[in-house]
Every structure is written in C-alpha cells, then in structure tokens.
C-alpha cells in the first residue's frame, strides 16, 4: 500500500470556528475537524479518491480522518488537519522548555484506510481516555 511522508500542519478554519460555536457535539463541528486537507496530487499518490478515509500516524498517535482536496494547493508533502480532538491525537507534547507543544510542521505518515471508519467524537474519546 502506498504511504506518504508528510509535514503535518494544524490550525483554525472558518468551518471549525463556526462548528465549535454550534457545539462540540454538533455534527458540523465533528465533520469540520475530522478531515485532512491534502494536495490533490498527494491524494493521487495515495491511490485513493477524494473523501476517502486515510490513516495519519505520528510518533505520538494514529487517527483515521477523511482526506479532502485542499483548495490551497499546490503544497505537496504538506497536509492540514484543523484543531480539534483528531489533530490532538497526533500532536507532539514536547514544549522544549516553552510551555508550548509543537502543533505545526510535525512529521507524519499517511496511508489509505478505506475499510476503516472515522470515529465519532464519543468513540474517539472512549478510545483515547477509556471513559
């Protein structure tokens, strides 16, 4: 199976901002932050279609999200996941003495995961925190 090594960015999007104000349990919110924006060329390299599920892995965790075409291409080798519980699974907690974890430019691996599903918020929390 094809695998890509990418640089993972996280950040705000207007949909995440809107979704968060509609409530963290709302579908809008969950849909807005369980995605991974990719360069269309990179999606092709993974040999999957747009909106297919992919698995993103860093040294700190691994999570299934939906691959969506970035409107900001080209940026091959760079993927973007909006702030939220999905991005946090992948985040590097090291602060290098600053108090601030590293949330942008982390090295990640990305691979197709067509048979796996994107967890709902509740399911994700249960897996992460066993509560």
């Amino acid at each position: 199976m094809p695998k890509l090594k990418v640089s993972l960015l996280t950040g705000r999007t207007i949909n995440q901002g809107k979704g968060k104000e509609q409530g963290k349990l709302s579908e809008e919110y969950q849909n807005s932050v369980s995605i991974c924006q990719m360069d269309p060329e990179d999606i092709k390299l993974l040999k999957v279609r747009e909106n297919a599920n992919v698995k993103v892995t860093t040294d700190f965790g691994s999570v299934i999200v939906k691959a969506v075409k970035s409107k900001r291409a080209p940026h091959s080798g760079v993927v973007f996941i909006p702030y939220g519980p999905w991005a946090s699974v992948l985040a590097n907690p090291k602060t290098h003495g600053t108090g601030m974890p590293s949330l942008k430019g982390e090295i990640a691996e990305i691979e197709p995961a067509i048979t796996e599903k994107v967890l709902s918020l509740q399911e994700l929390l249960r897996t992460c925190f066993r509560r």
């Binding site: 963290k24 700190f60 965790g61 702030y83 939220g84 519980p85 946090s88 699974v89 985040a91 590097n92 907690p93 974890p101 949330l103 929390l125 992460c128 925190f129 509560r131």
Partner: peptide, 16 residues
C-alpha cells in the same frame, strides 16, 4: 476551555 480536545493526547490523558 477544552483541553481534552486541544492538548496533545498524551497531556490530556494525564488530565483525565
């Protein structure tokens, strides 16, 4: 605030 959603998972687990 919502640190469980926004802290790196490793840190959030300790919080919980």
């Amino acid at each position: 605030s919502d640190p469980v959603a926004h802290f790196p998972n490793v840190a959030a687990q300790k919080l919980v």
